Simulated assay, not measured.
Amino acid sequence: MSTHHERGRQTVLVVDDVARNLTLISHILRPHYTVKAATCGEQALHLAVVVRPDLILLDVDMPGMDGYAVCRRLKADAATRDIPVIFLTAMTGPLEETAGFDAGAVDYISKPVLAEIMLSRVKAHLTVGVMAGMYRDKASFLEREVARRTEQIARVQEVTLLITSSLAEARDNETGTHILRTQHYVKCLAEHLRAHPRFADQLTGETIEAIFKSAPLHDIGKVGIPDRILLLPGRLSHREMEIMKTHTTIGRDAIERAEQRLGYSMPFLRVAKEMAYCHHERWDGSGYPQGLAGDAIPIAARLMALADVYDALISKRVYKPAMSHDDATLIILAGRGQQFDPDVVDAFEAVQVEFRDISMRFADSQQDFDEELLRLDWVAESP
Results as ranks from 00 to 15, higher is better:
R144D: 02
A195F: 02
I332Y: 04
L230N: 10
L57E: 03
M65D: 06
F101R: 11
Q366N: 09
T98L: 11
Y277L: 15
K273P: 07
G41K: 04
Y185V: 00
L58H: 03
D311E: 14
I255L: 12
T164Y: 01
V14G: 12
A195E: 12
F355C: 12
V309N: 01
R136H: 10
D341W: 05
A190W: 01
A272E: 08
Y288S: 06
G287Y: 12
P53C: 08
G224D: 07
A79N: 12
L119K: 08
E96C: 11
I56L: 02
P197S: 14
L126W: 04
A307I: 15
F101V: 06
L74A: 04
R252H: 05
D219L: 01
V122D: 13
A105C: 15
D370E: 10
A293H: 06
T80A: 07
D357T: 11
L373K: 10
G64M: 01
E206D: 14
T11P: 08
C278H: 13
E371Y: 04
T160I: 09
R198P: 00
H27V: 04
P94H: 05
V85T: 09
D54F: 07
L114A: 07
P112G: 06
V159G: 11
D82K: 02
T34N: 07
G287E: 09
L232Y: 13
G205W: 00
L119D: 02
R52L: 09
E240D: 10
S26C: 11
R336E: 14
D17F: 00
V309Q: 06
F199L: 07
R375F: 10
P289V: 01
D364C: 10
E145M: 06
L88H: 08
P53A: 08
I179P: 04
A90E: 08
S324H: 05
P53G: 04
A115G: 02
H280P: 00
L88Q: 08
I211M: 07
F87G: 11
R356I: 03
R181T: 14
D82H: 11
G287S: 11
T249L: 15
P321Y: 07
E96A: 14
G291F: 05
S382Q: 14
K245D: 15
K138Y: 13
F340G: 04
L142C: 01
C71I: 01
A350F: 03
A19C: 00
Y288V: 04
L303I: 13
A170E: 12
G133K: 04
L142R: 04
Q367P: 00
A48F: 02
K187R: 15
G67A: 08
I229A: 12
T175G: 03
R198T: 11
K138D: 09
D17E: 06
K222N: 10
S110V: 13
L374V: 05
H184W: 08
A200G: 03
S265I: 03
T89V: 06
T248R: 15
S165Y: 03
R270D: 12
E191F: 00
P342R: 06
R20G: 01
I163K: 02
V60H: 00
A90V: 13
Q260D: 09
A78D: 14
E191S: 06
P112D: 06
V159Q: 02
G291R: 05
M275T: 12
A254Y: 07
A380H: 09
H247V: 09
Y264T: 14
F87Q: 12
E274V: 01
E274W: 00
H247Q: 09
I109S: 02
L162N: 09
Q43C: 03
G337H: 03
A90R: 01
Q366H: 08
F212G: 05
H280T: 06
R356M: 12
R148L: 15
